[in-house]
Simulated scan of single mutants.
Amino acid sequence: MLYFPYDAQLTSRNPRAPALTAEVREDALEGATVAWRSELDGRRVLDLLVRMSWDEGPCAFVLARRVEPPGPSPFFLPPLKDWSLLVSIVVAAVVLALGPVVRRIRMLTEDVRASARSGYEQPVSVRGHDEIADLARAFQEARAEIQARMAQQEAREQGLRDFLANTTHDVMTPLTVLQGNLSAMQQRLSRGEPVNAAEVSSAMSEAHYMASLVHNLTAATRLEAGAPHVQRAPVDLNDVIARVLGRHQPIARQQRISLESGVPATPVRVLGDVTLIEQAISNVVGNGVRYGREEGHVAVVLESTREGRFVLRVIDDGPGISEEERARILERGVRGNVARTRAPEGQGLGLHIAHHVAQVHGWALTLNPSEYGGLEVCFSGEMLAPDKDSAPRAPHA
């Protein structure tokens, strides 16, 4: 005896299940038990389609098939009124065969629902070594994957919350100083007195610092969002350096720091996210200016190699960073908010973002003592092939 399950729409997941005629389907859907005889490979076949006691699931109907052995027919199709015993036997056999399977499926269903209600903390029980056990293991693996993704998302959100809280706190200090300087200048002007140059310089420095914090917040948010949010397009590093130096020149002049650059005549192009790259370079240059000594120097040097790589160095003659601190800063990553300070020994969030930007672009970032006593920050990575249509430019000085 062979058994083939069908769902409530008389569709079977078993590819070997016999096709049902329209007449059989109509009678079965109306609730009748349908029996018919046919031939298969020269042998007589008796089919009996029975509706089960449940209405849903892959076994709402069961087809019992018996194929006659070769020789005289050992059975005959009884009249409809005499089928009750045969139907009862078939139903009993199917229920006995499917009962344990249905119970295990229901237990698995309840386990999965309970796990979902617990936020996937409760595990799914795996019993046996058959297909149902494989399904339970698949649910268990999916649960572990969901938990890992939820933990990762929570860590990202917590990191952004911490960063936002710390950034808000950091903005308040320069904002208070800026408000004080502006108030003092307003009072001097109201008395007809000249504005103090030191107060103007301090106000510009605080405004510049707040702008850096806001830019870093944007960069950190994009980096935490993941690689799909990092745009990839050709980027001209010569142009990026020119924009970064133009941004920091006013503060450098106020602090009497010489800000210079040296780039190749042929533009150096890389594939990456221009906003993140510019922010990373701006952070490093800004650190050199912010923590540099009066009458000091900050230089940006860009070089290309014959192996198709670029080297971008930002060199200063400021106080520098100890070897222990250099290693620790690069290990912390974007979430290392403890190091966010304006003290010369801390260097702040800027290097964290620069390090993360280098990582997502496949570049290397190294920190070394400069030959002038300060710090040398070096970006290096692959560059695009030179554009044949681009003409050489005069090097910046």
Rank of each mutant, 00 (worst) to 15 (best):
M1Y: 04
L2K: 07
F4G: 07
T11D: 07
T11G: 13
L20M: 11
L20I: 10
L20N: 01
E23K: 08
E23T: 06
E23V: 03
R25E: 09
R25Q: 13
E30R: 15
T33Q: 08
A35S: 06
A35V: 03
W36R: 04
S38N: 06
R44V: 04
V45D: 00
D47S: 04
V50E: 04
G57T: 09
C59F: 15
A60H: 03
F61C: 01
L63M: 12
A64C: 11
R66W: 08
E68A: 05
G71M: 01
F75D: 05
P79W: 14
P79G: 01
K81Y: 08
D82Q: 06
S88E: 13
V90Y: 01
V94I: 05
V95S: 06
A97C: 14
L98N: 04
G99P: 00
G99F: 10
V102M: 12
R104E: 14
I105Q: 15
M107W: 10
L108C: 09
L108N: 02
D111V: 11
D111I: 13
R113M: 11
A116M: 12
E121M: 07
P123V: 04
P123Q: 10
H129Y: 12
A133P: 13
A138E: 13
F139R: 13
E145G: 11
A155C: 05
F163S: 08
T168K: 10
H169G: 06
V171S: 09
V177N: 12
G180W: 10
N181I: 02
A184I: 08
V195N: 02
E199G: 08
V200L: 15
Y209P: 03
V214N: 15
L217A: 06
A219W: 00
R222Q: 14
A227Y: 14
P228M: 03
H229V: 12
V230A: 02
R232C: 09
V235H: 03
D236W: 04
L237I: 07
D239Q: 11
I241C: 07
R243T: 08
R243I: 03
G246C: 04
H248Q: 14
Q249G: 03
P264A: 07
T266V: 09
P267F: 10
V268K: 03
R269M: 07
V274T: 12
V274A: 14
G286Y: 00
G286R: 00
N287R: 10
G288D: 02
V289S: 00
E294H: 08
E294R: 07
G296C: 05
G296Q: 02
V301A: 07
V301F: 07
L302R: 00
S304K: 15
L312W: 02
V314W: 02
I315P: 01
D316N: 12
G318C: 07
S322V: 04
E324T: 11
E325C: 01
E325M: 06
E331A: 11
G333N: 06
R340F: 09
T341S: 14
T341Q: 12
A343V: 06
P344E: 01
P344N: 02
L349N: 00
A354R: 02
H356N: 02
A358K: 01
A358Q: 02
H361R: 05
L365Q: 02
E371R: 15
Y372D: 09
G381K: 14
P386Q: 15
P386S: 15
D387I: 15
S390T: 13
P392Q: 03
H396D: 15
H396R: 15
